[in-house]
Design a protein around this nucleic acid. Structure first.
Length: 616
DNA sequence: ATAGGGTTAG
């Protein structure tokens, strides 16, 4: 199995290490939060939600099957007269004629979700007689960001920088967003410092929104607060949205006083009244946390009361609605929800959205009113709102958690009609609860659905499946899932140990040796002395300790043979290619190999950085 | 015709 994650990270390190704005420091490489099913922290889940949200604006990612294009060597580094002179980005008027045509063609590729082609086209155009504008580049970078193609994004950014396409503020904002999504706030802030020091233009208000939100999401509230002060010093207006982000940060830190302080500060800044409804949900939550229910409800009244001047959007309402639901004011929440429904008159005024239903569904569930929850969930369509995978998962989980597996499965069954696809989480959830409900065959069936639907299988879910099967004494079956999945997911050492242990306990020595054989082929796992000792210990129980050495020797022999065959092939090729002219042949070989590695790795990390050849 | 405003549930 190809070594996927480590090589990806190494690759990213190379990219960032040579990034123009980052060349002065050499921190750890950004550890990209790859999509995974189990989130270690709520922040990770939140980061994933943000990514999903952005992804919504683009067609859902198809299985990344488009072929990797041949790419050639980077050109010689250019030597402009003054390499330190910051270049001004082009003005929007540069986007005309041929360059506008190019722009539109690339936008079409993006719309068709062919990001590889869009990036490649952009690169190839650099040295053609029609250079892409920075606006075109930004469009591609943005699409890559939305699809979490972080290494592609960094690679393209580096490419255009080396090629002398001057980035503009939007380019930088995209880079900030990427680092923050990757949970690398420090790298984002380094980049920000470089921008302040070196760039021939200023940050934009959006720069601060991105940074402050990202810092809060990454648990750097203090730094976010400092940045708010800093932007004020620089003459930027910190608006209600910035304050809203910071208030959310305070709530996360259980610091209601921080919320109140921010609200007062905003109020003063706005001349005594805050009209934007977005901050009131947080304010009310602050009072609830503080145990000041009366104050909370006073502000609630002030926000939505008859003579209120506060402008409420659907999102602002949702935040208030959530405050009520989570603090024992469900009756009031229902009244508010009703009012939101009455005020909803699309397309003129929108006071309801998917989120409103998610909040009220959770409210019903908290009250134990699951039937009502399902009912309102199903009424969503009446208000031109449609559920997504996450909202289905949410309700399915609530039902499962409360002993209503059958109802959860009904709901799952209705996803298809609504055109919503279950994801790995849906299946993992149903799998777990089928095991709990003593239906192991159905549970395994849900697991197989993950594989059959072409979803990226996840080691955590796989571990849970095998764990349950072993607990039930279904060792053979567990082993068959090991065989099925070992090629598809990046196994962990502990997963190998687990299956070996289970096989050992039922005396299946040959199967153990099989697993060891697979392990030896797995480049991602080091067969440490300790691991070997563990295997030997298990084999010893059946008096087959010596078999480990046999397997290892055999593997060495096979590997040595393969190596020899490869060497022979190489020298034969060398003989042939010396007959042909040029290095072209050799290059192509190299590319073929790396393309194969990527396909095996199954990651979204196709970050090839080769530049096209300079002028033809 | 390049970023970006907010919410809620994994």
């Amino acid at each position: 199995m190809a070594l996927s994650k480590p090589s990806f990270l190494t690759h990213l390190k190379t990219l960032t290490g040579s990034h123009h704005l980052l060349r002065h420091h050499a921190p750890a490489p950004p550890v990209v939060a790859l999509r995974s099913l189990s989130f270690a922290t709520p922040e990770e889940a939140a980061a994933e939600r943000r990514r999903r949200k952005r992804r919504l604006r683009i067609e859902p990612p198809l299985s990344s099957s488009s072929a990797t294009r041949p790419q050639s060597q980077p050109p010689k580094p250019q030597s402009p007269q003054n390499p330190n002179a910051p270049k001004l980005p082009e003005h929007i008027s540069a986007l005309s004629g041929n360059r506008l045509n190019l722009h539109n063609r690339i936008l079409t590729l993006i719309r068709e979700n062919d990001l590889e082609e869009a990036a490649l086209f952009t690169r190839h155009s650099i040295y053609s007689n029609c250079r892409p504008t920075i606006f075109t580049v930004n469009a591609v970078l943005n699409a890559q960001l939305r699809q979490s193609k972080y290494s592609d994004l960094l690679s393209l950014d580096r490419f255009i920088t080396q090629a002398g396409v001057a980035p503009n503020i939007i380019t930088h904002n995209l880079i900030f967003q990427m680092y923050l999504d990757c949970r690398k706030p420090d790298t984002a802030m380094e980049h920000y410092k470089q921008l302040i020091n070196d760039a021939p233009f200023n940050p934009s208000p959006t720069t601060y929104r991105i940074l402050i939100k990202g810092l809060v999401d990454n648990n750097k509230l203090e730094r976010a607060m400092e940045l708010k002060e800093e932007m004020t010093v620089k003459g930027f207006v910190s608006d209600p949205i910035i304050y809203h982000y910071l208030m959310v940060g305070c709530l996360k830190n259980s610091d209601p006083d921080g919320v109140f302080k921010l609200f007062e500060e905003l109020k003063e800044k706005l001349g005594g009244a805050v009209e934007d409804g977005v901050v009131y949900g947080s304010l009310i939550k602050g009072y609830f946390i503080r145990g000041m229910e009366e104050e909370a409800m006073k502000f609630y009244e002030q926000t939505v009361g008859d003579n209120s001047e506060v402008k409420m959007s659907a999102i602002a309402y949702n935040s208030v609605l959530d405050a009520l639901c989570k603090n024992g004011k469900f009756d009031e929440a229902l009244v508010l929800f009703d009012r939101m429904i009455k005020e909803h008159s699309p397309p003129r005024r929108l006071t309801l959205n998917l989120g409103s239903f998610n909040v009220i569904v959770d409210g019903y569930c908290t009250e134990g009113r699951f039937r009502d929850a399902v009912e309102i969930f199903e009424k969503m369509g009446d208000y031109r709102c449609s559920p997504d995978t996450l909202s289905f998962n949410n309700l399915i989980e609530q039902l499962c958690n409360n002993g209503m597996l059958a109802e959860a499965e009904d709901l799952y069954g209705s996803m298809g009609d609504k055109g919503v696809s279950p994801d790995e989480f849906t299946y993992g959830l149903l799998m777990d609860y089928c095991f709990k409900g003593n239906r192991p065959d159905d549970a395994a069936g849900y697991f197989r659905k993950i594989v059959e639907s072409g979803l990226r299988p996840n080691i955590v879910v796989y571990n849970r499946l095998v764990d349950e099967l072993v607990k039930l004494g279904k060792i053979e079956e567990a082993n068959s899932y090991f065989d099925m999945m070992v090629k598809k997911i990046k196994m962990e050492a502990s997963s190998y140990r687990f299956i070996i242990k289970a096989l050992s306990e039922s005396g299946k020595v040959d199967e153990i040796l099989n697993v060891v054989n697979t392990l030896l082929d797995d480049d991602g796992i080091e067969f440490t002395e300790e691991l070997q000792e563990f295997v030997r210990g298990e084999l010893r129980k059946e008096d087959r300790e010596g078999d480990l050495a046999k397997v290892m020797e055999e593997k060495e022999r096979v590997k040595a043979e393969a190596k020899a065959a490869e060497a022979q092939k190489r020298s034969a090729k060398a003989a042939v290619s010396s007959l042909l002219s040029s290095k072209l042949f050799g290059n192509k070989e190299g590319e073929k190999e790396s393309a194969e590695n990527e396909m095996q790795s199954g990651q979204e990390d196709t970050g090839k950085t080769a530049l096209p050849e300079s002028n033809p």
